[in-house]
Amino acid sequence: MKFVGLISLLLVGLYMVTNWLFINVLPHRYIFDKDELMTMVNQTLERNPDGNSTAILTDLGASLHDRYGKFINELNFDEWVFNNAGGAMGSMFVLHASVTEYLIFFGTAVGTEGHTGVHYADDHFMMLTKYQMAHTAGELEPEVYYPGSSHHLKRGVAKQYHMPGGAWALELAQGWIPAMLPFGFLDTLSSTMDIETLWKTVKISAVNMVRNALWGKI
């Protein structure tokens, strides 16, 4: 019983420390501003009124690289990877990954639906094409987010979500990013067995986090 009590005390202490850091320290380590990114998204959409996905992602990727320099990976369609998490499947390109932030392009050509996961981070899902629907337990009508709008999934909140084929978004997460990684890995180990994709995802995440840390961005 003493051992259980000690473990419980350590877990409570760990939570208190990480939560204090989340509120008081992590925001000072962020380099991305959600409002600025949303402005860039809308400017990109205005330049591409026909809604062509390739043109929008290419245009926005270039603008992000111009704005944030070495902290943004140049868009390369050969470096996209699948992402299976919460029963949903899509593909993503990692623009930035560090201990406190990630910025990715995420979407699906054929449609998907699943669980958002519960994260130790705030997630901002900025729609570029089509739409995203979200459902909170107890709400009988869906939230619907169209191009130029952002779905803010707050830390610790869970929802169901749906995206039709051809829906693409810019996704910003800010918080304890390593704590989000198991959500992105467990579907591989429990169902898909797509070890190659898992290895690519781990490699991309690790390389980006270490490189950005060496540049002073945690």
Rank of each mutant, 00 (worst) to 15 (best):
58 T>D: 14
87 G>A: 01
209 M>I: 02
20 W>I: 06
36 E>H: 12
197 T>P: 02
166 G>M: 01
162 H>Y: 14
54 T>C: 08
7 I>S: 11
124 H>Q: 10
208 N>E: 13
188 T>Q: 00
177 I>C: 00
7 I>Q: 11
40 M>E: 07
194 D>A: 03
7 I>T: 14
33 D>M: 07
30 Y>C: 05
158 A>D: 09
164 P>A: 07
19 N>S: 15
197 T>D: 02
65 H>N: 12
109 A>F: 12
9 L>H: 13
70 K>E: 15
168 W>C: 00
195 I>G: 07
20 W>T: 08
187 D>Y: 02
23 I>F: 06
144 V>C: 05
1 M>H: 14
216 G>Q: 04
55 A>R: 13
160 Q>G: 04
32 F>S: 05
11 L>R: 11
112 T>A: 05
12 V>G: 14
132 Q>R: 09
189 L>K: 09
100 T>F: 03
55 A>V: 06
109 A>P: 12
156 G>E: 01
202 V>Y: 10
148 G>L: 02
35 D>P: 08
93 F>I: 06
144 V>P: 03
9 L>K: 13
32 F>K: 04
175 G>C: 02
197 T>K: 00
146 Y>W: 15
53 S>F: 09
10 L>W: 14
125 F>I: 06
93 F>E: 03
120 Y>R: 13
58 T>I: 09
